[in-house]
Amino acid sequence: MVRKKYIGWLLALLGLLALLVFAVLLALSTGELKLSLGDALQMVVFGGDESSMEYMLISQIRLPRIILGIAVGGALSLAGVILQGIYRNPLVEPFTLGISGGASLGVAATLVFGLHMSLGSFMLPVSGFAGAFLIIFLVYFISARKGNVNINNMLLTGVMVSFVASSAMMFLMAISSSENLHGMVFWIMGSLDEPDNLLIWLTFISSIVVLVVSYLFVQPLNALRLGEEKALHLGINTNVAVKILFVLASLLAGICVAVAGVIGFVGLIIPHLLRLFFGTDYRILLASSFLLGASFLVLSDVVARTIISPNELPIGVITGIIGGIVFIVLMSGQGRKS
């Protein structure tokens, strides 16, 4: 009986994995230079003529972008689902907590003060991460009292800090030159175009690590669905888990925003969609969110690259539009049901 449920989960995960493979192959083969899905598969699995144009294009341009897409898409929805679990609120995500606001502020400050000129372009992701970290730190310590973190406090503090960060960001935009302004706006809109392979792998590995660690805390996450007090009645102290998961999810989101800019809605829409199918059990939500988020971002990037080719749309625009519409449809459908 319960076995059936677990088999269902396994099949769903295999299905999502298949979707991800399909998305990756589609992304490898689509672009100005078109390949068949089969050729792309063959080239990835068996290698190809290393001097050919196709091979260069796939291995050095498309593949890194896809890996970053998997990492960022998976990480943002994972961070979303974790934060939603901690806050017992399906509308929470890295953006509502001010994490992206902080990262944007860091990047904007770097651009305005010209630090990327004097210290090198790696200052952009570093300052983005620093900004995100600062916000996490602020939210965490403002809402923590006597060693206990009050979850509702944390949410309110996050929203407030987020407002302050976006106002500060607007202030920086107002005083910056038009060239910097363009840089800021472009960065805010998000892109998977990241020249530094080290950053790509760093993001990828961080997202996998957080996925694995989150499974160590899946029991408190599940118990937390009843609230902290009732979890305690079941013998589970959620305090430590909440702290660790909050920091991990926020740092992961911070890394993503620092590397790929602001890519909204992934952390909101993917977990929401999966909850419709699986309910609220985090044992399946964590992994499935990661997989579906990864596929969603890789596919969104294909759309962003091809829709007005040879120009490229910012990926944040695509995820925002698709995610927003799907979300509204789902919400209105749910409203009618209840």
Binding site: V218, Q219, N222, R225, L226, L234, G279, T280, R283
Partner: peptide, 29 residues
């Protein structure tokens, strides 16, 4: 408790949570 407030959990999953005290910290199934 006076108010159950369990949210979107199936009744069976909810009742099964009563087994959590008997599960090891990292028991999954």
């Amino acid at each position: 408790n006076q108010f159950v407030d369990a949210g979107q959990i199936s009744v069976e999953d909810y009742v099964l949570m009563g087994r959590l005290p008997y599960h090891g910290r990292f028991r999954f199934f």
